[in-house]
Design a protein around this nucleic acid. Structure first.
Lengths: 190, 190
DNA sequence: TATGGAAGTCAACATTCATTGACTTTTTTG
DNA sequence: CAAAAAAGTCAATGAATGTTGACTTCCATA
């Protein structure tokens, strides 16, 4: 219908990049509007304000249905995502966004709660087994740490590396996380 | 000689807590001055401005000589640090500060460079062996991820846990990181 | 063509921020 | 005690922020 949908999309695109790269509080609406080639006032008109625009970008952040699918192995899903440079960049940006805003006074609780409801709680059920909560936390820790070291801290050992090498590093750590406190039994991996 | 040293210390104490909990850009000098019961103008007078005050808090952040000591095992040093609730809280706060400010437009580069010069480069030498750079990155990734999941994201599996349990989780992941590609099995080189 | 509503533009507002300079109080020194 | 230096106080400034309301432009429809 309205032609304003294009404007909305341009704003969401610019806002996603800005919020995810610099964090919520460090991003100004004027900068977003400038990148989107749109007047600042339209943000408050269409999204109700800065917080509404951030929420609009959040809804697409946690869209990862494969991860919690009962038919697929979460490890393989994660490795596959990071093996592809494009999806790797996206996923790493999402994680950085979460970490950067998880303690923001204005959006921190929203980010943590959304992450938990849409991803972590289902993933804990998917992982299952004994101490699922503990192994989930270690699993997430590995993903978060690797992403931060790679994209945010930019350590050469993980940043200046081919995608397949990074995938091998990640697989090593992820499996170590999920196999915590397991009996040292030799099992065949598909 | 001057009595202003007390004021400086109060400011640094308040600034450390504020900067480390809320990040550089989200912290206002007025709030710091209020907590320290000191006039705002004295910050610019004594430290030259906001950036100078932040630098003053940075110098104490990376003081961890044991970690790079040739006489001690970095794994045991880390585990020992996190096994003690008090030093655990301090170290976790430092890591969160690094992650929160590593991409700040104003202090990001300073934080990354200081971290690298004072801790990571010596630690890479200390770790040594083949692929020291890679294993260092994975080592740091585990520490960063665990700290963030525990204190920032607050996942119950790692946050609501006794210190010794957390220490066991950490040891498991850290050793997995440092033992990457150390298979006892003979493998061909491609 | 005229009309009404949607879409977009512009200027202004009230806040908050870091920083500065002039001023006052306190302490040291002669 | 008096002068000087140090330490602390206060108000103001300019810049940047999110948000609002009035205004103008565009376009489909009668």
């Amino acid at each position: 219908m309205g032609n304003s949908d294009i404007t909305r999309d341009k704003l969401i695109a610019a806002a996603t990049q800005a919020f995810w790269e610099q964090g919520y509080s460090n991003t100004s609406l004027r900068k977003i509007a400038q990148v989107a080639s749109v007047d600042v006032a339209l943000i408050s008109r269409y999204f109700g304000g800065k917080l509404g625009l951030f929420k609009a970008t959040l809804t697409t952040a946690f869209d990862w249905p494969e991860l919690i699918s009962p038919d697929k192995d979460p490890v393989e899903v994660v490795i596959g995502k990071y093996a592809n440079p494009e999806s790797d960049a996206h996923q790493t940006s999402v994680i950085r966004m979460i970490v950067m805003n998880a303690n923001d006074p204005q959006v921190g609780e929203l980010v943590r709660q959304t992450l938990r409801n849409t991803l972590l709680d289902p993933l804990e059920v998917r992982i299952g087994g004994p101490q699922a909560s503990t192994r989930l936390a270690m699993f997430v820790a590995v993903l978060v740490g690797a992403s931060m070291v790679r994209q945010s801290l930019q350590l050469p050992g993980m940043a200046a590396v081919e995608p397949d090498v990074y995938a091998r590093q990640l697989r090593h750590l992820v499996e170590a996380a999920l196999h915590f406190d397991e009996e040292p039994e030799v099992s065949e991996q598909g």
